[in-house]
Amino acid sequence: MRHDWIADILAVIDTGSFVRAAELRNITQSAFKRRIDAIEAQLGGPLFDRRRKPVALLATARPLERSLRASLQAQSMLLQEAGEVATGSGAITLACQHAISATVSPGLVRALSEAGLEPVRIRSGNRDECLVMLLSGAADLVISHAVPGTGPEPGGFEECCIGQDRLMAVAHPELPRRADGRLPVVAYPADVFFGGLVARLWAELPEGVTLHRRAETALTLAAYRYALDGLAVAWLPEALIAEDLRQGRLCRVAEAGPDLALEVRMTRLAGAGRERARRGWGVIRDLGGAVSERLP
């Protein structure tokens, strides 16, 4: 249904009057009546009980109200986004790994907002999904973890390091071993970024340490909850769990191997790019140590 049709219908619902609805929609009463008549003709029947004061939807049409409001909101947001893309206005979209959405992104949103780049949209996904968003134009910048010493992603990307982190094995302080002596763990799928890193760590476990996969998830935040709930050892970024370590809700599991150093990197498409991507890149890059200060 057309955006203006929905707005007209909701104006009548909200005011209870065709006269006040016409004023709200800033058109003459006669023009507004013709629009309502045209909407009802297109739909094949009346929507409003005109005998009532205030005017209201017919009983058969009342279930539509919630859907109409949701549709108007969604269409309005889509029109706003389309306009921002067309005009190159200040709105910016960051694609962040799930854990980074919960740790680093609030500080980035604050900095970008202060620079006039509003609204700031955060899209979450695993690392590969974030890069696909960047390539497709659904995101302006990617904020993700990377292993120090590795180069930029192939395929025309440019990267810069904006912070430091660590991947570490943690668990609830009272997590018991299984009866067979194996350590219960939550794994990541092999095709996600942390899955490859954890598989590398598992290949170097201390002698005598054996693992039992209790669960597998691609979501770092889900693995975090499993660790907090005492289900398993989880390998998590320190930025996500720093307060839990300080409060004793989680503890490091030394026998599960050493920590792995991580960088927090910002990635963009090489070349000129859109104006908001260039501005956002500069704002975040110029934060300097401020991003690292938000990490342990």
Rank of each mutant, 00 (worst) to 15 (best):
residue 252 R to W: 03
residue 266 M to E: 01
residue 242 A to F: 03
residue 114 E to T: 09
residue 19 V to R: 08
residue 279 R to A: 10
residue 83 G to Q: 14
residue 176 P to G: 09
residue 121 R to F: 13
residue 36 I to A: 04
residue 188 Y to H: 14
residue 69 R to K: 13
residue 28 T to R: 11
residue 109 V to Q: 07
residue 147 V to I: 15
residue 111 A to C: 11
residue 37 D to G: 06
residue 281 W to N: 01
residue 7 A to R: 12
residue 81 E to S: 14
residue 119 P to V: 14
residue 123 R to K: 15
residue 6 I to E: 00
residue 152 P to G: 11
residue 121 R to Y: 14
residue 164 Q to M: 08
residue 124 S to M: 12
residue 107 G to D: 03
residue 18 F to M: 12
residue 217 T to E: 12
residue 140 D to A: 12
residue 278 R to T: 06
residue 135 L to S: 13
residue 144 S to P: 00
residue 57 L to H: 08
residue 86 A to L: 14
residue 68 L to I: 03
residue 10 L to H: 03
residue 279 R to D: 00
residue 247 Q to M: 05
residue 175 L to N: 07
residue 248 G to K: 05
residue 59 A to Q: 14
residue 141 L to Y: 10
residue 71 S to Y: 01
residue 270 A to G: 02
residue 184 P to A: 13
residue 73 Q to W: 01
residue 101 S to P: 02
residue 94 L to V: 13
residue 174 E to V: 06
residue 136 S to H: 11
residue 55 V to L: 08
residue 146 A to E: 07
residue 191 D to K: 12
residue 128 D to T: 14
residue 181 G to K: 15
residue 170 V to R: 07
residue 287 L to F: 08
residue 13 I to F: 01
residue 35 R to G: 01
residue 81 E to M: 14
residue 75 Q to T: 01
residue 140 D to C: 10
residue 73 Q to T: 12
residue 108 L to A: 10
residue 21 A to K: 03
residue 68 L to C: 03
residue 282 G to N: 04
residue 124 S to G: 01
residue 45 G to H: 10
residue 178 R to N: 15
residue 175 L to C: 11
residue 256 A to N: 00
residue 151 G to R: 08
residue 281 W to H: 02
residue 4 D to F: 00
residue 199 A to P: 03
residue 181 G to H: 15
residue 224 Y to T: 05
residue 69 R to L: 07
